[in-house]
């Protein structure tokens, strides 16, 4: 069942009185009990997309157009008051840096209770009980003690657990996790990811997992979307994407990972840099400038999505002609 349906979403930021689209025509759906991963480099628009869904952009500086259908409602047409009831209760978000997302002057227990006070009609005792239950649920062994502590007294992993407890407190239908493990150690990362997955099994929420770490994607996702320069350039079920990535960007990205079992002296880097927002090419294949050895006519003039097998979509036609640079130099 689709719980979120995004159609042709544009998010533009004002720079010197002109709006530049950081998210440029993105459409996708999210089912319940599904983990949808959005992968991309910094500046590709993945976090902007997430904050647009829960309506965190200010009207003056950002222009959001398109449709975000959540059930019957279009979130872009909701009033601020309606959004306040949706945010936290039906759509929750977990941020990358738990220390700056938590209030440093409030005790952990009060911060979790805040969401319950606002969104539910539990009595005070019920809320307190619920706080302890939530802390236990996210794997904190001494909930009574932690509820009385302040954020700075907890380790990074514990803080992220508290963030997750706040996110799940009102049983949301959608959880948006923006780089939930980037600030954590590898040993803690696995624990937090396992926890998210277990909680999802209980609540059947849909999770949008935003990350730049392909390892996290491999462990968690059901479906993956790869973003580049504000656009989705490839979408596929996770097994398909890892077994046979198609778009040049996806293939180059996989290729640039340091492989544990390879003995290659050099890593394969992607030439060039992600173009900045004001210099984005708005027509044609946006990745063309970083694969200059691919002939120009391999790209479409107006790239569209092609379904190359069931559930596997690729933008532009350049993938058919793509080979890695070192291969192409051999052919010549």
């Amino acid at each position: 069942m689709d719980i979120l349906d995004i159609q042709n979403l544009h998010v533009g930021f004002r720079i010197n009185d002109t709006f530049y689209d950081a998210v440029d025509g993105v459409s996708f759906t999210l089912k319940n009990n599904e983990i949808l991963a959005i992968v991309g480099e910094s500046g590709c628009g993945k976090s902007t997309l997430a904050t647009a869904i829960i309506g965190l952009h200010h009207e003056q500086n950002a222009r959001v157009t398109g449709k975000i259908l959540f059930g019957e409602r279009n979130l872009l047409e909701c009033s601020e008051e309606e959004m306040n009831h949706i945010r936290g209760a039906e759509i929750a978000m977990i941020f990358q840096d738990p220390l700056s997302a938590l209030n440093p002057l409030m005790r952990i227990g009060d911060q979790i209770e805040e969401a319950l006070t606002y969104h539910t009609d539990y009595s005070r005792d019920e809320r307190e009980e619920k706080v302890l239950q939530l802390l236990k649920q996210v794997g904190i062994s001494k909930p009574e003690q932690v509820a009385r502590q302040f954020p700075h007294q907890l380790s990074g992993g514990m803080r992220q657990r508290v963030m997750i407890a706040i996110a799940i407190s009102c049983k949301p239908k959608i959880i948006i996790a923006d780089e939930p493990t980037t600030a954590l150690d590898v040993t803690i990362q696995a624990q937090i990811l396992d926890l998210l997955k277990e909680l999802q099994n209980e609540t059947e929420a849909g999770i949008i997992l935003i990350t730049h770490d392909l390892g996290v994607v491999a462990e968690m996702a059901d479906r993956v979307m790869v973003m580049y320069a504000g656009e989705i350039i490839e979408e596929a079920p996770v097994q398909k994407l890892f077994a046979s990535p198609k778009h040049p960007y996806t293939r180059l990205l996989f290729n640039s990972m340091p492989q544990l079992h390879s003995t290659n002296e050099r890593l394969n880097a992607i030439e060039g840099i992600v173009p900045s927002l004001t210099h984005l090419p708005r027509t044609g294949c946006r990745f063309a400038s970083r694969i200059p050895w691919i002939p120009k006519d391999a790209h479409e003039e107006q790239p569209i999505f092609h379904e190359i097998s069931k559930g596997h979509f690729v933008k532009c036609t350049c993938w058919k002609y793509f080979n890695f640079q070192h291969e192409s130099s051999i052919n010549r």
Binding site: E41, H212, L252, L253, S256, R266, L267, A269, I270
Partner: peptide, 11 residues
């Protein structure tokens, strides 16, 4: 750094 840039710097 991002993955692709990381590779550039390490090389």
């Amino acid at each position: 750094l991002d993955l692709s840039v990381q590779a550039q710097v390490l090389n």
